[in-house]
Design a protein around this nucleic acid. Structure first.
Length: 937
RNA sequence: GCCUGAGUGGCGGAAUUGGUAGACGCACAGGACUUAAAAUCCUGCGAGAAUCAACCCUCGUGCCGGUUCAAGUCCGGCCUUAGGCACCA
């Protein structure tokens, strides 16, 4: 009888008593394997089902690798600084550490009850002064090397939380925690210049085995864009300003400039008569929170400041506006606006009625030698009353088209369109709705035997009345004038130019794609890429600008007005200088407080009057009272696990060199840009300094999916009634069942709903295994019937564990057990091999069965089973025979069977004969070992 | 709007990367064991037409189209959904 609780208690005790999973990090005799879980914040709620999923995955790999002869490092610790403990301290007046330690104890006991093979002698807590001494020390190095800076800058300020937040802690203008409004405010801040690492971070992504989606998110977060700086002079003044653009090729199309309302030059160049208006607008923007700014996204706002800029390429004077669609914090805080080729500028120009100048034409059709050039139009007429469009049906001579025609010398596109509509259809009472961007089209005219390259203007008219005049048609023009629906146009108008013209006028917006340049002097005829290079050269040559790279990534604000975090080890001296603490002053320990609240937006540490005042070696000053953000400790903890009790350095370099990088890192996708970016930054920094041996800390990263409630809804705060407490499952079904079930639910990375019946199924499987080993079928000897499936199982399970496809590995184990149930003899060799395969998933029952098989002690270091490929290869095989792609029969073939023999067999299979009878055999396709397909007519 | 994934029976999910769709599990149904139930073991289980029954036939991987001897898998266009980004010039 499978008594899970007895077995599990027994083996948990055994592992603890024998220090089974202690890792000797100095043992370099075996290959190393460092497998890591993202360490949890020890919340009062304790372990949830999602933790168990990720931790079981690493546990399986860890246990398998150990059996495969690796020296495995699989540690666990706690990210123990954080808001809940602080809130507890605020409301009770007790030190947050007590609360934290209690939660950590609960967490540790829960983790142990699930049987994870962590080496608890290497655990760590980020809130432990022994640990944060080194967090402070690394910060100090960042400061000394100029990466950590104290600067005045706009920050995300949350009044309710009384602290500054980083960009990733702000969601839609609200705080990530609590959802309180966040406003922008200027403050002196400690920041880390992460953009300095941007290129290294981008390059590093190429070398690591991470989910592509996570890499992509990081790339977007870094937000590299290559472009140019362009200098504009302000007309009639000595002032000039620089803009950043990724599209210097469109400079000839710049029809205005925009500065952010905060731009330093605005107040100097605004004309006196515009002053009041400009200041009013600036005021509105300054008081807007981020939330309001995003809400106001839909409608562009702005003010003309009265000044003009001079476009360096053509000396044209263009107006300067201010608008909050230009951000002060990105680029230079000023832009050149090219409404024809930028969506935002287009929108703004439409609203403020600013000229739109096209300098790039989309190209359609295929170019040819000796083309004749001409200008033409595509005129679309819309009749609102019947919701139909005017088309011309040319039948064989071109299908359905809109009205088209060639512009005569001196004739405008609109005039040409009106003329052509009148001549071809007779309609005269029409009104122009829009004239869209020109298209550069190549085509061949069959009737004239000429290749054309035309510049075609799409126009949209609305029909006002049915008023008509006589059509004026040439002899050869035979067509029908038809009003058709939009659907009809979309399916019947095949001509590339006309279809494109229709989509242009139906959805008028900026032309942002590639094409060829026009009205751009030395750029004319070039495509986007060529023109960008040409323009940058021109700018550099004429000293009007240069190539420039910008990053969206901002400075990482590295201070919070909170108590429960690492104190920033810095003192402001009386002479105004900044003193970073000497090494022997570290750790700078958090003082006990009477009151853990911050008052009036000030940090709680302001309450520590004595602690705050600094006097040392003749220096007098006050300490920084803000603390580091939550992500500080987690940005390097993976290095500390390797040498967690070292008091002389954060970790011994020789050990780091042996153990880094982390071979497998598993954790939730919510850390894709936060923790995983910060860790890479710190590690890159330490690498540059020669303190970390590898550039990239996490060689392979996998995100576990979310475990949903049984109804498919996210568990957690909103629906506590659907929450599953994994400890209940351990109590009622056992830890092995919990582990097995969570691994069998589906792919590790997918979100999956919980199923109580599924848990019972998992337990049934373990029970079935247990009974099998009790049954007496396990005997010395052989059973040929099981040979193939045993070797298949070893192969499949080994490979699937390696690639983290646990669900299919377990499925294979079930298939194997089902097969053994049909046999009378279960050879001991297979019985032992199989239990080794089971061990990583369900270690307690595996250890117990291992003992039942006559062994003493743990199986944790037993050798992982091997398989013999030759035993897996089948000598005969069933393959399908298809007739015209449909399976009609299966035949047995031997591996080395001759192709003609296979054909012969296939053609004579009973059901195949029925399907090919009386038909002509076109061909027979034989794919060795896979399939036969007979094609008949 | 943009960038990533995903969409397969009643359900969770398989499918060697283009080669017998639905492995394995759950649920359900039938049978065996039992005085009986539970547990266990065995069998069946995508939909449909037809048949005493078996073979067999048609349809079927979100939708429409394409490539191919062959498409869940590749290509084009949509729809739905999850996550991320969102005036970044």
């Amino acid at each position: 009888m499978y008594n899970f609780s007895k077995i599990e208690n027994k083996w948990r005790k055994y592992w603890a008593d024998h220090d089974t999973f202690h890792t000797d990090v100095w043992d370099f005799s075996k290959p190393k394997f460092y497998v890591l879980d993202m360490f949890p914040y020890p919340s009062g709620v304790g372990l949830h089902a999602g933790h168990v999923e990720g931790y079981t995955a690493t546990d399986i790999v860890s246990r398998m690798k150990r059996m495969q002869g690796y020296n495995v490092l699989h540690p666990m610790g706690y990210d123990s600084f954080g808001l809940p403990a602080e809130q507890y301290a605020v409301s009770t007046g007790n030190h947050p550490n007590g609360f934290t330690q209690k939660n950590i104890e609960t967490f540790t006991n829960q983790l142990k009850s699930i049987g994870f093979d962590y080496d608890w002698s290497k655990t760590l807590q980020t809130s432990d002064p022994k640990f944060y001494k080194w967090t402070q020390w690394i910060f100090k190095q960042l400061y000394l090397d100029g990466y950590a800076k104290y600067v005045d800058m706009p920050v995300n300020w949350c009044e309710e939380l009384g602290t500054v937040l980083s960009n990733d802690e702000v969601i839609d203008g609200k705080s990530e925690r609590g959802g309180y409004p966040v406003v922008r405010r200027n403050m002196k801040q400690w920041v880390i210049d992460q953009a300095a690492f941007a290129e290294k971070l981008l390059a590093g992504l190429e070398e690591i085995d991470w989910p592509e989606s996570t890499k992509e998110m990081q790339r977007n977060w870094i937000g590299k864009s290559v472009g140019a700086h362009v200098v504009f002079k302000v007309s009639g003044t000595d002032h000039e300003f620089t803009v950043f653009t990724t599209r210097p090729d469109t400079l000839f199309g710049a029809t205005y400039c925009v500065m952010s309302p905060e731009h330093a030059l605005v107040n100097e160049i605004t004309t006196p008569e515009k002053k009041a208006e400009v200041e009013a607008y600036q005021k509105i923007c300054a008081t807007k929170s981020d939330l309001e700014r995003t809400e106001l996204n839909k409608e562009k706002t702005g003010v003309f400041i009265g000044a003009y800029a001079i476009n360096p390429v053509n000396q044209q004077e263009i107006p300067i506006y201010i608008s909050d669609y230009v951000l002060a914090t990105y680029g230079t805080g000023a832009i050149m606006a090219v409404p024809a080729h930028d969506d935002r500028d287009y929108e703004f120009a439409k609203k403020f009625d600013i000229p739109i100048v096209q300098v790039l034409e989309e190209v359609t059709g295929i170019p040819h030698e000796n083309e004749k050039r001409k200008n033409s139009i595509v005129a679309i007429v819309y009749d609102k009353k019947q919701d139909k469009y005017l088309t011309i049906q040319w039948g064989q001579n071109g299908g359905r088209l809109f009205v088209g025609g060639t512009r005569q010398t001196g004739e405008s596109a609109v005039d040409c369109a009106i003329r052509e509509i009148g001549e071809e259809t007779g309609y005269t009472d029409i009104e122009l709705v829009c004239e869209d961007f020109k298209i550069n089209h190549h085509y061949y005219a069959y009737n004239k035997d000429v290749y054309f390259n035309i510049e075609a203007t799409p126009l949209l008219f609305e029909l006002k009345s049915d008023e008509k005049k006589e059509q004026q048609l040439d002899e050869d023009e035979k067509f029908a004038v038809e009003w058709v629906s939009r659907e009809c146009i979309e399916s019947e108008i095949k001509d590339e130019l006309h279809a494109k013209a229709f989509s242009y006028v139906m959805n008028p917006n900026a032309m942002v794609g590639d094409g060829i340049h026009i009205h751009s002097e030395f750029l004319d005829g070039m495509n986007k890429e060529e023109a960008i290079h040409a323009m940058i050269s021109w700018l550099e040559e004429h000293h009007y600008g240069n190539k420039q790279v910008n990053y969206r990534m901002r400075e990482w604000i590295f201070a919070r007005q909170r108590y429960w975090g690492e104190p920033v080890p810095v003192v402001y001296l009386e002479d105004g200088k900044i003193h970073v603490l000497d090494d022997d002053e570290l750790p700078l320990v958090l003082p006990e407080l009477e009151d853990y609240r911050g008052h009036g937006g000030k940090a709680p540490l302001e309450n520590a009057k004595e602690w705050k005042n600094y006097s040392h070696n003749g220096m007098v000053g006050v300490r920084e009272t803000s603390t580091m953000p939550g992500s500080a400790g987690s940005s390097w903890y993976f290095l500390r696990y390797i040498d967690p009790s070292n008091d002389n350095e954060f970790a011994n370099y020789e050990l780091l060199k042996h153990w880094m990088p982390v071979d497998l890192y598993i954790g939730g996708p919510e850390h894709a840009v936060g923790h995983l970016m910060y860790s890479r930054i710190w590690n890159h920094y330490l690498y540059d300094k020669g303190l970390s041996p590898v550039k990239e800390p996490f060689q392979k990263l996998v995100h576990q999916g979310m475990i949903l409630g049984a109804n498919g809804i996210k568990m957690g705060k909103r629906y506590p009634e659907y929450a599953i407490d994994p400890l209940d499952i351990v109590r009622d079904y056992g830890a092995d069942t919990l582990r097995l079930y969570e691994m069998f639910m589906g792919p590790l990375e997918a979100s999956k709903p919980w199923s109580q019946q599924g848990v019972e199924g998992a337990q049934k499987f373990l029970d079935r295994i247990y009974r099998l080993y009790e049954s007496g079928k396990v005997q010395d000897g052989e059973n040929k019937n099981l040979e193939k499936i045993y070797h298949q199982t070893v192969k499949k399970v080994t490979e699937d564990f390696e690639t983290l496809n646990f669900n299919t590995a377990i499925s294979q184990m079930m298939i194997f057990v089902n097969a053994v149930y049909k046999e009378d003899i279960f050879p001991k060799e297979y019985a032992e091999g199989f239990i080794k395969l089971l061990n990583p998933v369900a270690p307690h029952i595996a250890e117990e069965i291992w003992e039942m098989l006559g062994h003493t002690g743990t199986m944790a270091f037993e050798e992982w089973p091997t398989y013999d490929e030759s035993k897996i290869v089948e000598d005969t095989r069933e393959i399908a025979v298809q007739v015209n792609g449909k399976v009609r029969a299966t035949i047995m073939i031997s591996v080395d069977e001759d192709e003609n023999m296979i054909k012969e067999k296939a053609m004579n299979a009973e059901n195949v004969l029925r399907h090919i009878e009386g038909k002509e055999i076109v061909k027979v396709i034989v794919i060795k070992g896979k399939i036969v397909n007979i094609v008949v007519k």
